Simulated scan of single mutants.
Amino acid sequence: MGRTTALRSALKAVFYPYVEARGFILDTSNQPWFTTFRRHQGDKVHVFDIQWDKYGGPRFVLNFGEAPANGLVRQHEPIAPQHIDLCDCQPRLRLQRRRGGTMGCWFQLRRPLWEQFISLSREYRPEEVAHRVTASFAEVETWWATRVQGPHVHGIGHDA
């Protein structure tokens, strides 16, 4: 069993049904390090992906943004809404367990050091992480509705 297997399984059991109930569709042509979801919302396409640690660690971050629902043009080629990727979105933002630019800010099994001392446990259970990202996803929905960045949202695009 790989280092991310338990965490990926917990996300599939807890988080995937949550976002699918909100109209998101899983893109089945994913790469190993990215899992992309999309939904049509009025005149926009909301896109987010789960980006896994490229070194195989049990950690991930959610990148999100939006694009026009009628599609767009990328490198002189028309892109249909169902094929819009996060690279087509402006601005691009990130949902993580806390603000900051390091991988220590990503959702992950390892607890912060201070929390390890208090809990006497080095890691969270995978289900705890899945429930945490599910609860934090409300900040993504809030940003799409109001453009207000919550405490777990961090800008990564040019206009964020």
Rank of each mutant, 00 (worst) to 15 (best):
T5Q: 02
A6E: 02
L7K: 01
R8T: 03
Y18L: 03
E20A: 05
G23R: 15
F24Y: 15
F24R: 15
I25R: 14
D27T: 05
S29K: 15
P32Q: 13
W33S: 02
W33Y: 11
F34A: 11
T36I: 15
F37S: 08
H40F: 14
K44G: 02
F48P: 00
D49Q: 13
G57E: 10
P58S: 15
P58L: 14
F60I: 04
V61C: 02
F64I: 06
F64G: 08
E66N: 07
A69G: 09
N70I: 10
N70A: 07
G71F: 09
G71P: 13
G71I: 09
R74K: 11
Q75T: 04
Q75M: 10
Q75E: 14
H76M: 05
P78R: 14
I79D: 06
I84N: 04
C87S: 05
Q90S: 14
Q90C: 13
Q90N: 15
P91R: 01
R92M: 12
R94V: 06
R94E: 00
L95P: 03
Q96A: 11
R97W: 12
R97C: 02
R99P: 10
G101W: 14
G101N: 15
T102V: 06
T102P: 01
C105P: 05
W106H: 10
W106T: 10
F107M: 01
L109T: 12
F117S: 04
L120W: 00
R122C: 03
E123C: 01
R125P: 05
R125W: 11
R125C: 09
P126G: 11
V129N: 01
V129D: 09
A130W: 02
H131F: 06
R132Y: 01
V133Y: 02
T134V: 06
A135N: 11
A135Y: 13
A135G: 08
S136M: 10
S136N: 11
S136K: 02
A138C: 08
E141V: 03
E141N: 08
W143K: 03
W144S: 10
T146Q: 05
R147A: 12
R147E: 08
H152I: 04
I156G: 07
H158G: 13
A160Q: 07
